[in-house]
Design a binder for these strands. Structure first.
Length: 424
RNA sequence: GCGAGCGUGGCCAAGUGGUUAAGGCAGUGGUUUGUGGUACCACCAUUCGCGGGUUCAAGUCCCGUCGUUCGCCCCA
């Protein structure tokens, strides 16, 4: 049997209702904040991600789905995240010409070759926001506020916002030196992974889960103490506005995000109801990315949410059920079945959700299914009704039923709709 | 890429080397050949993810493989 590839999965109707709820809620809140949807390709030239995300990162180094185009010349990569593509689009379509700030959002699948785990798939889905063209601290806060609004609207609990500033390139370079000097005497005590990172990416050592390394990291010099005055000022302004908006946060001096393009504000929203993959939303400022990709110097901030993780949380706290039809159509007999199809179509065109039983099985069986469908009423059309072009309407809860002509049903459609919506 | 656990019908499962692989849900047919949600009856795995091995005997033990779960790594 051919089965779905590892790390990919089917989202069946029972689960899709949660996805739809998330997408609807996010879209609603994003629209209210005047963000507009953008759809960019799922694959791009590999160079976009190498340059944008950074060649030294794990995502680029070992997690990308990269292949050569049929022509054999172009190296192509399935997007591992959304920001690089949006930034590319911003430059290519000269969106800056349309005025100061672009407020964009996107949703769709992303691809990373990783070991699948709860809340981590090889094909996974994100909803993301990119606010491009403003370097104001206010932009950072607005982006974060929209994210927290979405999570709040979904009714999610036990979330916490962690925030830090990684400053600008110069700040980070300076901090790197300071940190290395501090770590030098502890070199032998660090865990193996962290020792590897000393050269490659010392900032990530702060994030280690190894107990001894964590103890060492506890007392390490903090990056915010290495920030330039302007970087510090930016960060303080962000924190102040978060407080003004009553958005709770905690400064996490160890928070360093994994993609190279982040500058200044970095943040994560985590849930304590998930396992190791606890981050439901992550993002930050990326003032250097657009210039790095060949555009003009353009400040920007963005974030992405992992839809699969939101679905897990939502399933734990709410029952969302698949939409039931308004009417279930029971029919049997050649003439009757033909008339049922016609009438069902007309009712659908009038705005009712009608499920037509196609089984042709005994009436008893069809009624049983009518029950399970969750419909409030069913229509019954058999040989007798077909003869007189009538139909029987039966209310499933009361068992009450009445026969009328098919024309009468359509004429009385508004009262029928009202009665159905009252019973749903 | 590394470590550990798990894998019995569509779903949830019992089963801890001995002969016909419990049970529940769902499904199908019937009691009720045109009226449901209840009840009752019947049917529904030549087979235990797949391949190999040990044994007189394997769902049960061993090896491999695939899948899955949890953790590391990474990240949303």
């Amino acid at each position: 049997m051919i089965q779905a590839l590892r790390g990919t999965r089917d989202i069946l109707p029972e689960e899709i209702v949660y996805w739809q709820l998330i997408e609807r809620t996010a879209k609603d809140i994003l629209s209210k904040a005047a963000f507009q949807e953008i759809r960019v390709p799922i694959f791009e030239q590999t160079a976009l991600f190498e340059r944008g995300i950074g060649e030294a990162t794990d995502v680029v180094g070992k997690e990308m789905y990269t292949f050569t185009s049929r022509g054999g010349k172009t190296s192509i990569t399935l997007r591992p995240e959304g920001t690089a593509g949006v930034a590319r689009s911003y430059i290519q379509n000269k969106l800056q010409a349309q005025g100061g700030v672009q407020r964009l959002w996107y949703t769709g699948p992303m691809f990373r070759y990783e070991r699948p785990q709860a809340g981590r798939q090889r094909q996974f889905h994100q909803i993301g926001l990119e606010l491009i063209g403003s370097n104001a601290p206010r932009a950072d806060v607005e982006a974060i506020a929209v994210a927290t609004d979405i999570l709040k609207a979904l009714g999610l609990k036990n979330l916490s916002l962690a925030i830090n500033s990684v400053g600008r390139g110069e700040d980070r370079q300076k901090y790197r030196e300071t940190l290395l000097t501090y770590l030098e005497p502890y070199k032998e005590e660090l865990d193996a992974d962290s020792r590897d990172r000393l050269e490659r990416n010392p900032l990530r050592i702060l994030d280690s889960k190894d107990q001894r390394t964590q103890e060492i990291a506890q007392d390490a010099p903090k990056i915010i103490d290495s920030l330039s005055d302007s970087s510090k000022k930016h960060f303080d302004a962000v924190l102040q506005m978060l407080t003004d908006l009553e958005i709770a946060y905690q400064i996490d001096h160890c928070l360093v995000r994994g993609l190279d393009y982040y500058t200044h504000t970095a943040f994560e929203i985590k849930s304590s109801d998930l396992g190791a993959q606890a981050t439901v939303c992550g993002g930050g400022r990326y003032d250097g990315l657009i210039a790095e990709l060949g555009g003009a110097e353009t400040p920007a901030i963005g974030w992405a949410m992992g839809i699969e993780r939101l679905v897990i949380l939502l399933q734990e706290l709410a029952q969302v059920s698949v939409d039931a039809p308004d009417l279930y159509f029971v029919s049997r007999g050649e003439q009757a079945e033909a008339q049922a199809l016609t009438l069902a179509q007309k009712l659908r065109q009038s705005g009712l959700a009608v499920e037509l039983d196609l089984s042709g099985s005994a009436f008893g069986k069809q009624f049983k299914r009518a029950d399970r469908s969750g419909a409030v009423a069913c229509l019954v059309l058999g040989d007798a009704e077909a003869e007189t072009r009538s139909v029987n309407l039966k209310w499933l809860a009361s068992g009450e039923q009445s026969t009328m002509t098919q024309t009468e049903v359509l004429q009385g459609i508004e009262t029928l709709k009202n009665k159905i919506s009252a019973l749903h």
